[in-house]
């Protein structure tokens, strides 16, 4: 379970990095500082839904101060 979660976390970070066009994303990064727009939030959430069968809301990513906060919310819903 712990290993699966860590893998999920790194998948989420990778999806965010891919969509934002940055090399890597750390848990303490503010998604907005990385250039996140609402359209990118929608794209990120669609990919997480597809890859991990989790169902995050774009509003949740847009409202998160850190990547870690978003990941915690996504896991809470999954």
């Amino acid at each position: 379970m712990g290993v699966g979660r860590r893998q999920d976390d790194s998948t989420i970070r990778q999806v965010i990095a891919d969509v934002l066009g940055v090399e890597s994303v750390s848990m303490s990064d503010n998604p907005f500082d990385l250039g996140l727009t609402s359209i990118q939030a929608i794209r990120i959430c669609a990919r997480i839904r597809h890859d991990l069968s989790l169902d995050p809301a774009p509003e949740c990513l847009l409202g998160s101060a850190t990547v870690a906060g978003f990941v915690a919310t996504v896991r809470g819903r999954g």
Binding site: S38, A46, R49, A57, P58, E59
Partner: peptide
């Protein structure tokens, strides 16, 4: 009722 029209 959501802010965005998502594929789902």
């Amino acid at each position: 009722e959501t802010d965005f029209l998502l594929p789902q």
